[in-house]
Write a protein that binds this DNA or RNA. Structure first.
Lengths: 155, 155
DNA sequence: TAGGCTATGTTGGTCGGGCCAACATAGACT
DNA sequence: AGTCTATGTTGGCCCGACCAACATAGCCTA
């Protein structure tokens, strides 16, 4: 993730795609460190699922997948891990017996709050080199960069 | 990579780390598409290695690894693939018989130029939503974000 | 009512980028 | 001579992201 002595080939090092990938590496490295130190072995999928359940209330696995952008199969796996930690409960939807209704537990809510803190700290670390105004700019630029995605599928 | 109907949990969707990860997903998706269409099955490791060899001249695998930030073992694998396509040649360093001297071939240079074109096109696609001034800002902000890495190891 | 279609959860893969451990051995340094 | 480091290589792991296939529940329609 670091390659510090790094010269980096010239045709690589100034390209936006390269900067983006380094930025992501930095961000996800800090995130991973945060999860490792206070995340009890959970990963980003778990956080996204807990967050979705907390905000949207109980949901089926398929809905969770659609809402979070996580593949159905990965949702299944991640939920099993959350369930074994009692952070989440699965029950069959009586109206639709093929469907599971997933609910966040009290312990899940608490874990989520803890992860919130970890992640908020990481935001600070990631943006540390920038001034407040620059942070705002940076965020706005990324938002604009991504805005197309929402409007035109496959855009 | 897309998750278009995506609402995305609120505590997730506005965090810089999330925007960074989406930006990266967009960028690397476009890159992958470019490599697939005109990259003859090569991937980013191959490009980085070819670029390094082209710019720095023949080098040992260890030096390539250090220069590009690619792990020694991955350098070995990627070079084998490049070698089998005749884009690169390995020869034993007579002065240090444990060391390989890797050289880019003419075909390698040509492939590199082709990849350059592909990748330049991707830069354009990635930044398309931004104005020229915004692109400059965005690049400058990322450069600043990453500048710490060079100065303080593990920073 | 029977047949087909879709949605759901699950299993079991693949891939790329990034790591790490272990090993044999070539050179260097003591 | 003995130790230490550097090199290339093999083989593994992890995470995030996909995909294919499957059984089956529920639907909608011929």
């Amino acid at each position: 993730m670091d390659h510090p002595p790094g010269r980096t080939p010239a045709r690589v090092k100034d390209r936006p795609t390269w900067l983006i990938s380094r930025t992501f590496a930095r961000s996800s490295g800090l995130l991973a460190a945060g999860f490792e130190s206070r995340g009890r072995g959970l990963r980003s999928y778990h956080y996204r699922l807990l967050a979705a359940l907390d905000e949207w209330g109980p949901a089926s696995q398929a809905d969770l997948g659609r809402g979070t952008g996580i593949d159905r199969s990965d949702v299944t796996a991640a939920l099993s891990e959350l369930e074994s930690r009692r952070l989440v409960e699965r029950s069959v939807d009586p109206a639709h017996r093929r469907r599971n209704i997933v609910t966040i537990t009290q312990a899940g809510v608490e874990q989520l709050l803890e992860l919130d803190n970890v992640i908020d700290g990481v935001q600070e670390q990631v943006l540390k080199p920038l001034t407040t105004a620059q942070r705002r700019q940076f965020i706005a630029l990324m938002a604009k960069l991504l805005a197309t995605e929402d409007e035109s599928p496959n855009g």
